Simulated assay, not measured.
Amino acid sequence: MFAAKKLLLALALTSAAGYVQAAPVTLDGAAFSVTYDDALVGLFGTPTLSGNTLFFTPTSFKAISTNGAGVSLASQTSNFDILLKPSANLRLTSIDLNEGGDYLMMGQNSFVNALGQMRVRNNANPSMEIVGSIAPAAPLAIKDGINHNWAAGANADLNSAAWNNVGSARVTLENILLAYTQADTGPQMAFAEKKYSGITFNVSPVPEASTWSMMVLGVGLLGYLSLRRRNQQ
């Protein structure tokens, strides 16, 4: 009975310790802050905010298949919330993702790829979402048994009127590395590793009320002049 109580206490402490370790972390920048759950970054590793770019330099995000082992997958998905500072008087215009790493293939029946998605969702209106596919800038196709670099990226354009006043957004980053070798075809190796992911939040100043008034007045004046010319013809 005493042993059972000790076991239950140990399990409770372990669970509590795991709960305490999972906590939101906020990185504060000049124009905005980025918040994430430190228990959910996984293979990405701990991010760093430098200027307008949130970046990761993972050390164990890799997929390996050798000598017909079949498909090997390494994947990770995590969320990052960006909150613009009202005092900065800025708006989000676009979000760019740039990634890179290296790969190695040996044998004609070896294959690697790096792919995924970047999703941007309006926190105030979750039905507003932009999805960008992540794909390599060039095919990962060299099979000479030597390491080669790869690069990939995605973009979310937030310049539409619907996103003009968005002050907070959630970025969901999904990364997948794939390595494959086919059985019974001799010595083979397929290896892909991610070494960098950078999410850049591009912002621009929000026009002052006087600027908007001048723009509306200008459009109205152009419309009046156009109508007047038509009437004079």
Rank of each mutant, 00 (worst) to 15 (best):
L43K: 11
N202F: 00
Y103N: 12
N79S: 13
R119T: 11
N123G: 04
T53G: 10
A151Q: 11
W212S: 14
S72D: 15
G51M: 00
N79H: 06
T200L: 04
G70M: 05
F55K: 13
I146K: 12
V206L: 09
Q232P: 06
S204E: 11
T46A: 12
P136G: 00
A141M: 04
V171I: 10
T53K: 04
I64N: 12
I82S: 14
A192K: 07
L222N: 11
G220W: 00
N164Y: 04
V120Y: 04
D28L: 03
D184M: 06
R119S: 14
W163S: 15
I82A: 15
R229P: 09
S94G: 12
G18Q: 06
A141T: 09
V71M: 06
P86M: 05
S33Q: 07
P126W: 01
L27C: 08
N98Y: 01
S15N: 05
Y196P: 00
N89H: 02
Q188Y: 05
G223R: 05
G218T: 06
S72N: 10
P136W: 01
G223F: 01
L83A: 14
T53W: 01
A141G: 09
A156I: 03
L43I: 00
A63K: 03
P207Q: 06
A151K: 07
P47W: 00
I142H: 12
F111E: 15
T66S: 15
F80V: 08
D144S: 08
P86C: 05
F55E: 13
V25F: 05
L90Q: 14
G42E: 09
F111V: 14
E129K: 09
P207D: 07
T77I: 06
Y19G: 15
A3C: 09
W150P: 13
A114P: 10
A17R: 04
T14H: 07
S127N: 13
S133W: 01
V171W: 02
L158G: 15
D38I: 04
Y36M: 10
L73I: 10
A209S: 07
K5C: 13
N149M: 01
A31M: 04
R228S: 14
G107L: 02
T185E: 12
A63Y: 03
S197R: 05
Q108N: 12
I142K: 14
S72Y: 01
F32S: 15
N123H: 02
N202G: 09
I95F: 06
A22N: 09
D28H: 03
H148Q: 13
L227Q: 11
S168I: 01
L90I: 07
Q182V: 07
S94I: 00
K6G: 00
L83M: 06
L158N: 12
K85H: 10
A190D: 10
K62H: 11
A31E: 14
V20M: 07
V34D: 13
Y103A: 12
G51N: 02
V120H: 09
S133K: 06
G153M: 01
S210M: 05
D37M: 02
L217A: 15
G70K: 02
K6D: 10
A161F: 02
S133C: 02
K62E: 15
Y224S: 10
K85C: 06
N155A: 13
W163K: 14
L225S: 10
A169W: 00
P58F: 03
G153D: 07
D28P: 02
N231K: 08
A151C: 01
A12S: 11
P58L: 05
G167R: 04
L92A: 08
L13S: 13
